[in-house]
Design a protein around this nucleic acid. Structure first.
Length: 288
DNA sequence: CCCCAGGTCAATT
DNA sequence: AATTGACATGGG
């Protein structure tokens, strides 16, 4: 990978398929703030990182080479060849459209614990409100890093919360689900540290023992924090776009999964993200 | 005032 | 096994 090391900044050039706005705004990640066009601040891995992108280069700061190599290359999935993936997926003409609409999407490799709690909050909720709730929780239970930015709380930190506390953070009826996730992770019923050695189906079943975690949230955790490209998280938007483009009207999630696994295989998760972004931004909402 | 949101649970059939 | 209403909260 071709990058330059500056004074507490890493400058990345000649990277394909990287659009920081598309990556952060496509619905996979909740802890980012737009400073101005193509300048974002994220909080991840106990760090605050700014990303500024121009046509020529992408700047990551404050950042030294060690952190870039150890943390951010993996976080931004920089070793994956998205051109090859897009070429493969573009054999399907619907995917071709979705990819052309947002060719700079990448799937981030996020922290599993944060991803789990964030997507528990996501159920029957809207993205701006999910962001707000995650922010509230971080401010109340996380650690101050710098500049009013708080890390997402660890299990030990979040365990201090009561159901009332969590409701004050605007998590609503999901507060008790978060408590259950804390409890089951604490007593090692949820084996986050073993996930990397478990099959996708084993991880999914383990996550779904948490009250408030069903197949959709489990698949989001698998895709966005465990690099399992073969899952196809299916929410209302995915259901709409699949019905609109691939099915003649109404169908069910089981049929959608069967179709997606056969058609996209190990690239299903990435395909899903292009489709989700396309459906949401084009407001695909057929009256079928 | 009614509708819905990156779903899931529990009750009912 | 499949269907249906409830659930907190706030924006359109």
């Amino acid at each position: 990978m071709n990058y330059e090391i500056g004074n507490n900044v890493i400058i990345l050039k000649d990277i394909d398929s990287f659009d920081i706005a598309q990556i952060l705004e496509c619905g996979q990640c909740f802890r980012f703030k737009k400073i101005e066009d193509y300048k974002y601040r994220i909080v991840a891995n106990q760090k605050v990182l700014y990303i500024g992108q121009t046509e020529q280069e992408i700047r990551f700061y404050p950042c030294n080479e060690e952190d870039f190599k150890n943390i951010w290359i993996d976080y931004f999935d920089l070793n994956k060849d998205y051109n090859k993936i897009k070429e493969e997926l573009s054999k399907d003409k619907i995917l071709k459209q979705a990819i052309e609409y947002a060719p700079g999407i990448r799937i981030l490799n996020q922290d599993t614990w944060e991803c789990l709690i964030s997507f528990i909050i996501s159920q029957n909720n809207r993205i701006p409100m999910i962001k707000q709730a995650v922010e509230n929780i971080s401010k109340k239970y996380g650690t101050l890093i710098e500049d009013e930015c708080y890390s997402f709380p660890t299990l030990d930190q979040l365990q201090l919360a009561t159901e009332e506390d969590l409701k004050e953070c605007k998590t609503g009826f999901r507060a008790k689900y978060i408590l259950n996730a804390c409890q089951m992770t604490q007593d090692n019923s949820i084996k986050i540290n073993d996930f990397k050695n478990m099959t996708t189906e084993e991880v999914r079943q383990n996550l779904m023992t948490i009250k408030g975690v069903g197949p959709k949230i489990a698949d989001c955790v698998l895709l966005f924090s465990q690099n399992r490209g073969e899952v196809f998280p299916t929410d209302v938007w995915i259901k709409r776009i699949m019905q609109y483009f691939y099915f003649e009207g109404e169908t069910n999630i089981k049929e959608i999964h069967k179709f997606a696994y056969e058609k996209f295989g190990s690239l299903a998760g990435i395909a899903q993200q292009y489709l989700f972004n396309y459906a949401r931004n084009k407001n695909i909402n057929p009256s079928v």
